[in-house]
Design a protein around this nucleic acid. Structure first.
Lengths: 165, 165
DNA sequence: TCATGACCGGTCAAGGTTGACATGTCACTA
DNA sequence: TAGTGACATGTCAACCTTGACCGGTCATGA
């Protein structure tokens, strides 16, 4: 895969969990090639460079997966903003939640499209399907949260302590 | 609030959406004070410095909330790893998902405790309750996803295309 | 009296990340 | 023929973030 292709696929596949621009990808590919974790193939048209992972590279990924435990600190600016709803005008607060609703619905539609596109055949595709399911459920939960929040914004003093079951 | 207190509260409140260590908070408080967005009060015991937001600071937060739209790129390493389930041994794959399940359950318990602790009275507390609800639903969705994924790992070739409703 | 642990402030180097800038190719179409 | 837009690779300064290090205070209990 080329750096260009990688940048696009990054966005389309794991983009919901991590992102990286081309300005990060190109230098990183060179670094990985220097370390022997990927190797460059024949240059294509328009200076296209393709890379393939090496055995050593695959080992490095596996080591990372097996021997380091995940950093569970999540970063989610949109969710962070919700803590500051009270600093917004009522109109802005509604707009914020409505924006979240729209964004989550869009994500949901997009992921449903991807999920429906084709049945997973390879182990890699099956993993991606499982990962996609997490995104799907995340988006679904956020849609439901936004609807709940909108109701709550309509009538703040009346309700309290309702925890989602 | 002091920098020390801020670092702790950061973790306890918005920690699920953003995090910052004290090594980031202390310099930032000084920078904000230089810009007049917060002001330092009387020093307390053990060199404790307290800061309060200024009118200008509040305006800056409001401007940020009202005039910039949220960066919706999320960062979630644990979710990212799921894309690479196929590179793990079956045992490691199970362990990964079980780890996610345990972590999500723990988060869920903790957030339920916070939610039950006290009914929101001020507008700030009501906002926090709404933000907390998002975390609650997120954790709930992840618990359900992990259970679904574990079933799927048990019997990979049999199922396909099941989309969460 | 001394050790422990929570409290409290900070710095700094290394590394990650972004956004703007820069350069050029190739296919298509007005 | 010229312009547009997708393809393709890169650099760089500024900024963000982490983890390790450093200094010190105060209350509690052994």
């Amino acid at each position: 895969m080329s750096g260009y292709e990688l940048a696009q696929r990054f966005e389309a596949s794991v983009g919901s969990t991590w992102s990286a621009g081309h300005s990060q990808i190109y230098p990183e590919l060179n670094r990985l090639a220097d370390e022997g974790l990927v190797e460059a193939g024949e240059p294509g048209p328009r200076g296209r460079k393709t890379y393939a992972i090496t055995g050593e590279g695959r080992d490095a990924v596996r080591t990372w997966l097996a021997e380091t435990d995940p950093d569970r600190t999540v970063r989610d600016e949109a969710a962070l903003r919700t803590f500051f709803l009270w600093l917004m005008t009522p109109a802005d607060a509604r707009a914020h939640v409505e924006g979240e609703l729209a964004a989550a619905q869009e994500t949901l539609e997009a992921l449903r499209g991807t999920a429906a596109a084709r049945r997973p055949a390879t182990p890699a595709e099956r993993s991606q399907r499982i990962a996609l399911e997490a995104g799907l459920r995340w988006a679904q939960a956020r849609v439901e949260w936004a609807r709940w929040a909108l109701q709550r914004l309509d009538d703040p003093p009346a309700r309290d302590g309702l925890v989602a079951q």
